[in-house]
Write a protein that binds this DNA or RNA. Structure first.
Lengths: 333, 333
DNA sequence: CAAATTTTCGCACACGTGTGCACCCTTCAT
DNA sequence: ATGAAGGGTGCACACGTGTGCGAAAATTTG
């Protein structure tokens, strides 16, 4: 059997009330008594029962985390960031996967709320604004990662996609490219639109035309990037550089280009987005706009904990991505 | 405020006892009463409080999962398998990362136990047999993934590393290779030894010599594989094929080989282990011995649930890997 | 119609921890 | 010596759900 405060009370010859107070270092209990009880608790190997505490105090010390898929390396790093903060502050992390199904995401969030988590972090939500009424009904603070929404219980941490798209495209322009394509993502939603916006803005500023046939869509994964690149390779004239929605897309694009016998660079330059480890696996290594992924997770968790513990916190945080120059870009050949 | 059975009792004009029984479909309550109470519960939007249930019934419906790092793609797939099963059966998944620190792994397992999880799954444990006394003291069933141990509360699911190593090496021999190297892992522990054992066995059977200078060690990650391959490239004669401890190591080896100007194949053949998605990102795509990773997670979760729900279950399951032929191997050139 | 039986429900307590308030025992002042 | 003041501790209840057992109501039986 597990040791409870009643067992300690019996051993110490006091009531469980006194034990409870002694262990919480209450001023009401005489110091010697406190010390004696602590010693007995130690000797008996007492571990407080968090379930009972939660029932009593209405706090489970647990954060719910909702993610679409873990097989997407973007999310894993975010979750690691969350977990590190949570672990350091004594919170547990209850993980649920939605598999990109909005309906499932909804039911998962409700399930987490029913499980009495203190707060929820949702990474890469697929749910739009119709989401909000539910969140408010739950009365649980929620932090959205890379999905901006507004509402009384809703907070967010995101990277600036417009800026990132602009950064990538400017970089290619700076290398001397004038024929720059964009491979987007069917499933990218708002973030795809924003990166595309940054791309257009950079083109416009440089006085470069926006060619519709150079804007194609993948699916945010390797296969989609590959297929999209094959379509780009058939255009005439061909772009000399490609900005890809994310690194997986870029890796697919690179595969297709290499298979077509192109040298990357100089025949083609490819830049990705995210800053995944995986970008260093390929040859040439992928140049990319890195999102501070772990930071996203960390900040989301810290924000949530601040809110839960009643400290002030900003409601929305926007982070900037940074360019990582590796090998997949160069001047047009 | 949250709706409790007391609220329902008040609305229905019965005691909370009756409500509790009605909702659990007890035979003691008259069918009409049951239906009436259910209707009221429905109307009020009642959700049972799992914390209170856990306190009363000693079950939290939560599984603890311990993993070294999520950034290792091997684990993510395993965790996904676990989560899918858990979600389908109404269990939550409490995730903790140990970051390859044995001491942390220990404390995490104890923390999970303190948090009253019903069972624990440990993926890729770094703790050896001195682990066992603690596990027994906790009296919580534990399933180890890819780490075989024996004890009253200890179960395991693993892939057959000896067989996998043998399979990979036989495949290379079958292609005509007679100079086959092995890049192991410093941190691989038992699994590294077993894969190496399979390698030696295949060499012995084929009458090939085991050359010490062709057995080097990486760290199970890309960088280590790269460095190890550079060392191999300096040997004379050079191996014509390399079996790598895992896919990340193989990706590193491939990078080094390509950088040295080798064609893979025919100048060099490389085979990995794990069957990661990442193996398809590189050019040429990696041939590998695939572990049924999601299956590992699934089986571990199913095993644990069987045990928890009192159904019989095998204590140890050993799965076989399968060869996936892609592009990185061919006859020696 | 009364007694025995069955059905239906509520009382009281349990699970482990926390807390408002009353009570008891010192201690000190009068 | 008596009263007040104050510190130290325990009683009783709360949190939400589940359950053994007894009591009341409904039904069957003699």
């Amino acid at each position: 059997m597990r040791v409870t405060i009643k067992d300690i009370a019996r051993a110490a010859g006091v009531s469980h009330t006194t034990v409870s107070r002694a262990l919480r270092d209450s001023e009401e209990i005489r110091p010697e008594t406190r010390a004696r009880i602590r010693a007995i608790a130690e000797a008996l190997g007492y571990r407080p029962n968090p379930v009972a505490r939660a029932l009593q105090g209405r706090r489970t010390q647990t954060l719910g985390v909702v993610v679409t898929r873990l097989s997407d390396p973007f999310h894993t790093e975010v979750v690691q960031g969350i977990e590190m903060v949570a672990q350091a502050r004594g919170y547990g992390v209850l993980l649920s996967l939605s598999h990109e199904d909005p309906e499932k995401e909804r039911s998962i969030v409700e399930l987490l709320a029913a499980k009495q988590v203190d707060g929820i972090i949702v990474a890469a939500s697929r749910l739009g604004s119709r989401y909000l009424p539910m969140l408010e009904a739950l009365q649980i603070p929620i932090v959205l990662i890379n999905s901006h929404q507004t509402g009384p219980y809703v907070y967010s941490v995101a990277t600036d996609n417009v800026h990132g798209g602009y950064l990538a495209t400017r970089y290619l322009i700076g290398l001397g490219h004038r024929a720059i394509a964009y491979i987007g993502s069917r499933r990218g939603g708002r973030s795809n639109q924003d990166r595309y916006r940054g791309y257009r803005q950079a083109l416009r500023e440089a006085g470069l035309p926006l060619r519709p046939e150079w804007v194609v869509k993948g699916d945010g994964r390797v296969e989609g990037g590959e297929a999209a690149m094959r379509r780009l390779l058939e255009t005439d004239p061909r772009p000399t550089a490609v900005f890809c929605y994310n690194d997986l897309t870029a890796i697919g694009a690179l595969k297709a280009a290499l298979r077509a016998g192109l040298r990357v660079p100089p025949d083609l330059s490819i830049i990705g987005f995210d800053g995944l480890e995986e970008g260093t696996y390929v040859t040439p290594m992928l140049t990319t706009v890195a999102q501070p992924r772990r930071q996203l997770g960390r900040l989301a968790a810290e924000m949530l904990l601040e809110i839960l513990e009643g400290r002030p916190s900003p409601k929305h945080i926007l982070l900037q991505g940074t360019l990582i120059e590796r090998e997949s870009c160069g001047p047009p050949g």
